[in-house]
Design a protein around this nucleic acid. Structure first.
Lengths: 159, 159
DNA sequence: AGACAGTTGAATTTCTTTAACAATTTTTTA
DNA sequence: TAAAAAATTGTTAAAGAAATTCAACTGTCT
């Protein structure tokens, strides 16, 4: 799942996520605490979808003892400042992904094996733009999921 | 929120949802019980997004005393036979919508007032078709959400 | 340095969804 | 038509996610 494009090489420089967050926090009159910093840094070391429990376990394994409550409290902040986004609710809990610095993309989900592929399509942007105009919305993001059965699962299935 | 198009007038006849469901149930060797019938009929009298609790209350108000467990048990059946679909997870629970007999459409969601608008776009179908070919998936549906702020909320906001 | 307001972790609570189970109903089989 | 097999229901309990409460603590600002 190569989903990321770090701002290295010839791509234009990108403000680090942590700075975006710090700035957002300050603008809101909140506090940039060590806990929040640890959580945010960890999230951006994961280069794939993640969930609260995974994040919590990763931090524990690194010896960082944060409460889940802090994670639950930090996530809305990250959503609000446009760094992450909810992707899908599965297995009883929400899954998230990075947004900032990532090409807007869509997901292909297999109902059988739960594999998730990603793709981009120029037309999504166009639709976004058109609809935004037509309805007068100011859009902050989109979520596009195609749901079905992947080629592997189709092969296995004999019906 | 006019989301529905009943198969009346000059539109082609459509097999009633309940028949689709009955047929699916029979094919699976399950049983078409009165409880299931009541639930399915109620769902298709709602012409908007719905959730389990709303459905439960509607039934109670009509004097139909079904357990929530039965609703929770019926929903996956309706999803499996393509009559309904999950739309989004909000306020701690899942929301559903009809699929069968409805033009595939996308949602526009306002983060402030939670209003949901709908629209269709021919390009969504095209993308669906193209991606399906490219990745070899057999698709059963899609979910497309544009997230942002509606014109009304933008007006109220003074920043 | 001191005051204020925001934050943390632990425990608790709320809420959704699933599961277990005994009683019941339907279907199948003989 | 009766007995056996299988599925379904409601109730109750359980599991789990997410939000909340609160006392202790810690940045931030002056």
């Amino acid at each position: 799942m190569a989903r990321t494009k770090k701002g290295k090489g010839q791509e234009p420089e990108q403000v680090p996520e942590i700075d975006i967050f710090r700035e957002y926090i300050r603008r809101k009159g909140l506090r940039f605490t060590p806990e929040r910093e640890i959580i945010v840094r960890e999230i951006f070391e994961i280069h794939d979808h993640f969930d609260v429990d995974e994040l919590y376990l990763r931090l524990r394994n690194k010896g960082k003892k944060l409460s889940k409550a802090s994670i639950y409290r930090t996530i809305p902040l990250l959503k609000d400042c446009g760094l992450i986004q909810e992707v899908y609710h599965e297995d009883g809990h929400m899954h998230y992904e990075h947004v900032y610095g990532h090409e807007p993309h869509a997901h292909l989900r297999c109902l059988t094996c739960r594999r998730v592929d990603e793709f981009t399509d120029e037309r999504l942007r166009e639709i976004e733009r058109d609809v935004s105009e037509r309805f007068g919305y100011r859009l902050t993001g989109f979520r596009f999921e195609l749901i079905g059965y992947c080629p592997e699962c189709l092969k296995k299935e004999i019906s």
